[in-house]
């Protein structure tokens, strides 16, 4: 049964070679930033493209939220604790949006380096807790971070 064995060998070789190729391609792709998600540090450093719809994620800096009393326009600072980026947005913010909360904003960077968001999403994490505990934890650790 040599032809049969030969055929099996070919298939096995193809699978090994193909798998190696897949792994190589995926590893290469992972090295590139393909989902256009940038941290505030990357944006400040100028790594993010201008005029492209990108996403920025981070924590809303405490005390940075400014609401325009006459419109739905808001501005706030987003931070990854190292660098801050100013975000401007017009529209209704989600209920979970508050200072110290993690958010993801989608939009474009303008020429002044201000992020003009067309969408702000509150990212709520997998941590759930009763209010009393949250209260006590907040008192114990007064940081910008709401996450315990």
């Amino acid at each position: 049964m040599t032809p049969k064995r030969k055929q099996r060998m070919t298939i096995a070789l193809l699978i090994v070679f193909g798998t190696a190729l897949i792994v190589g391609l995926v590893m290469y792709a992972l090295k590139q930033n393909i989902n256009l998600f940038y941290s505030t540090t990357q944006i400040v450093k100028g790594e993010a493209p201008k005029d492209a719809r990108i996403r920025v994620g981070g924590m809303v800096l405490k005390g940075s939220l400014q609401r325009d009393p006459n419109s739905l326009h808001v501005s706030f600072l987003v931070t990854d604790t190292a660098e801050n980026v100013k975000v401007e947005y017009t529209g209704i913010l989600p209920d979970l949006f508050r200072e110290g909360q993690g958010i993801i904003a989608q939009g474009k960077l303008d020429t002044q380096g201000v992020f003009q968001a067309d969408e702000v999403l509150a990212k709520h994490d997998e941590n759930y807790m009763p209010p009393e505990i949250a209260e006590s934890m907040k008192n114990a650790k007064p940081t910008t971070e709401a996450k315990p």
Partner: peptide, 16 residues
């Protein structure tokens, strides 16, 4: 190139 690499990986995978 990253996108194309991923599309390529999917192609090889289905090809197998």
């Amino acid at each position: 190139s990253g996108h194309l690499a991923l599309l390529g990986a999917m192609m090889v995978f289905t090809l197998l």
